[in-house]
Design a protein around this nucleic acid. Structure first.
Lengths: 241, 241
DNA sequence: GCTTGCAGGTGACGTAACGTTATCTAATAT
DNA sequence: ATATTAGATAACGTTACGTCACCTGCAAGC
């Protein structure tokens, strides 16, 4: 009967020698043989057991629960409650991801963290209750949530909106007019993006932009300054007329 | 200037007193005042700092990184690499969830863990390479992956398929024929389910069932025994003719 | 005056699953 | 004879607190 040392098993199953020794220590997997020098030797059965452990680890199951499953101690219950636990983790993680994306996008827009804006936008905070929702019908809300970028996303469109906002801010800072060359470019790109987002539904688009112009406190949306909104309006007017 | 004790802050911000003491200990948030007895008193500024910490915690950001962000030490880089880290966690978690669902469904089908089936189905294992994919066109694959239940899901349809399989096994065990009352019920439910899954595309449905009949080793799908497949065919024949 | 209770405090240990030293030993290769 | 390799043990470090055990100061009730 063939036997394998720790190093061999580790290489073969792509885990560390330390891990094998640890599993021995907590009696999750004791090698069948030990020689006089204390060296561990794993049998074929041991390897099979290890494979089960590795499969169960791929469920992110804690070692203690793995032991229960292997010993067939109410393993169905263990797995079901583990499944529920994982679902909880998933929703936490999704919140973390969207909050992180929001923060990164805000930083891109502000160059330094404005905690007022952050706490308004991060879900966690009590002030963020997505008030803009009140202005739309249910089907419109579903559409906007899917199609229109939002700071908690990290997709291409969101990044394009952010870059346009940055360019506008830069124009304002450097006193470049909305009627200039750059203003023209910004307007055309903005129109294109907006068209893509709303997929041609100009009614909805107009409605959204109207609401966008209201004070941020009323809508719960990321605050865009008067100046920027003004710039947008003027450069778009300039292109469409 | 109002000051708050640990207990008051803890209640107000819904964290534990221990947490506040810990943040003091690691110098993440030191209260501005300490009285002669060592009691901590938090100022308004301290509370604001705490709010920032709580927001950053909602990103699942480690405390050490929170410190960096608060001290403005390359916070943008920190957040971006954290975002990438979270995305990795997300994909791991999703694997764990689908593997866990597979295991639970297999247990429901087998009453005791058959490690052969498990290791065939859990992604991690090298044998599972989704060979059934080879039999279909790309659009068909996309459709099947969305609409047709798969052991790594936990939706209603999957559960219904599993319960039907269990009923069939029970019929076979108890020598109940496919032409019986129960066989008739099973067949009608199976047809209904199948119709829902394939949304009326009977061509694709037939193709899928043909492939389902092949040995599991060829397809990489969960193995359904000859007996069960035979039962299915006979009871459906009985209903449709 | 004494007890009781409460709200605060300081250690110190426990957690999960190993990674990472540091140090030792036995066997093999040069 | 010596250098390298592969094995072993022991012990600390990691994260963000929870959970004791034990101590203090202060107010209320007896």
């Amino acid at each position: 009967m063939k036997r394998w040392t720790t190093g061999e098993v580790a290489k073969q199953r792509n885990i560390s020698v330390r891990t094998l020794r640890y599993y021995d220590q907590i009696n999750l997997l004791n090698p069948s043989f030990r020689d006089d020098n204390g060296r561990r030797y794993y049998s074929e059965d041991d390897l099979f057991q290890l494979e089960k452990i590795i499969i169960l680890k791929s469920l992110s199951l804690p070692l203690e629960d793995i032991r229960h499953v292997l010993e067939k101690l109410s393993y169905k219950q263990v797995l079901i409650s583990h499944y529920n636990y994982l679902q909880e983790q998933l929703s936490k993680l999704q919140t973390s991801i969207s909050n992180t994306a929001s923060l990164i996008n805000i930083i891109n827009l502000e160059e330094s963290l404005s905690w007022k804006h952050v706490s308004e936008l991060v879900q966690n905070s009590p002030t963020s209750s997505k008030k803009w929702i009140e202005y739309f019908r249910e089907d419109e809300i579903a559409f906007i949530q899917k199609a229109v970028p939002n700071l908690s996303n990290n997709d291409e469109k969101t990044q394009q909106y952010i870059s346009l906002l940055q360019r506008i801010e830069s124009c304002i800072k450097n006193n470049i007019k909305p009627e200039s060359e750059e203003g023209f470019k910004i307007a055309t790109q903005l129109i294109e993006l907006s068209d893509e987002s709303f997929q041609g539904d100009t009614n909805l688009m107009d409605k959204f932009w109207e609401i966008r112009k209201q004070p941020a406190g009323e809508t719960g949306l990321y605050p865009i300054s008067e100046e920027v909104l003004d710039f947008v309006e003027r450069c778009i007017d300039n292109v469409t007329t």
